[in-house]
Amino acid sequence: MSTAERSTTRPGSTPNRRSRQNFETWSWFFMRISGLILFFLALIHFSLTHIFHDVTTTTVSFVAKRWANPFWRVFDWLLLALGLLHGTNGLRFIMDDYVRNPRKRAAVKAFMYVLAVALFVLGTITIVTFKGNLAG
């Protein structure tokens, strides 16, 4: 690093700040790319389950018919994964804005990450292990 660069950087914070900034740029980019994909996934999903079919007909056998085709399992899994990542990262922005106390902020974030991971695992297990013909 050049002397000129060092003189403009706050002392004691160089490597950490650099990687944090990279992460925030990446996160900013991710929100936009995942938003674009979710635009189609989420709106198609909602239309299928609430507009083109009545919600009362989306029973186990409805799911069984849909998930017989691997395309829809992949579709739903992508919606699960991107929705959780995009939503949890968005929630992280919101916590950064409103939870000012550093210790509280760390605790709230830890809680929401654990919850998101747990629900991601639960959702993935549901999609992968579902065997439709049991229910009829």
Partner: peptide, 9 residues
């Protein structure tokens, strides 16, 4: 919704 759908099992 992830929780209610997990009841598919």
């Amino acid at each position: 919704h992830i929780v209610d759908v997990s009841m598919l099992s």
